[in-house]
Design a protein around this nucleic acid. Sequence first.
DNA 1: ATTATAAATGCAACAATATTTCATTTACTA
DNA 2: TAGTAAATGAAATATTGTTGCATTTATAAT
Lengths: 146, 146
Amino acid sequence: MTHAKTTYQFEDLLDKHQLKKTAPRLRVLSMMYSKNTATSQPDLESVMHDIDRVTLYRILNVFEEKGIIHKVFDLNGTANYAICHSNCGAHKHHDEHVHFNCTNCKNVYCLNELTLPALNLPGGFKAEGFTLYASGLCSKCSKKAN
Amino acid sequence: MTHAKTTYQFEDLLDKHQLKKTAPRLRVLSMMYSKNTATSQPDLESVMHDIDRVTLYRILNVFEEKGIIHKVFDLNGTANYAICHSNCGAHKHHDEHVHFNCTNCKNVYCLNELTLPALNLPGGFKAEGFTLYASGLCSKCSKKAN
DNA sequence: ATTATAAATGCAACAATATTTCATTTACTA
DNA sequence: TAGTAAATGAAATATTGTTGCATTTATAAT
Ligand SMILES: [Mn+2]
Ligand SMILES: [Mn+2]
Ligand SMILES: [Zn+2]
Ligand SMILES: [Zn+2]
């Protein structure tokens, strides 16, 4: 669970990445840090209905470039965005963890604590990045189910 | 590498799944079986420009339902479609293999020969399906690069 | 072979997601 | 406080995917 963060810390974060401290950016940061699941683009849009769609796309893109968030696709191919926990930076993401799609509540969880087992690829294939997608029931939904 | 298949074999395949043998379906099958990489939806559309877009979507959907093909998303979230090699059937896919996205040629490879290492998830999470996405250089592109 | 029928296709309209361009506003610097 | 570059908002456009309906086609029955 992510520790709650103050506006000051979000402003620092923007400063650190040489991004101007604007209201839309602070709101996006605060929303994404308040959850322990990824945020879908449609969700983001409906919650931030007063921010222009284009602005949201631009914020997401620049945050991804800077290594603040990373993009995850759920089982339907919908874009979701999650906070980077490893030390990701501009043009160097290290989000090689498990992404869990709950088939019931549709939430997407970053399972940062799990490290992916090594994998030897067929001859010639040189892998740089990995992501393991898993689908099933999350802990909350499997608890409800029994 | 998939062995070349004849029209008769594609007709048999459609028969086996109780699908009518139509020209668009045979063309889609023949195209997808002729490659050892997944086919993106945009590619499919441009190659089969004389088949209606909606028909293509419907063919892809019914093939997926029947377990003939499976859908893969590439790094940009674009839908790609690949032949199922394991014995997939209606409503039961077994495509838990590695999907390799080449960052150079953009091809998506199904690495069926690799089995995914076991993985123990955090308490409560019950996984049903897995897919491991890897990105980097495919064998052809890494050969060219040196 | 002919016909009947259900399935598949094609077309038009629509919806959702994403990008480009440009005018206006805002944050930061000097 | 004024100047400037960056960010936002708004409109237009592009791409991807879905829905409804009329027409055509594959298959089975006669
Ligand atoms: Mn993640
Ligand atoms: Mn595959
Ligand atoms: Zn759940
Ligand atoms: Zn390649």
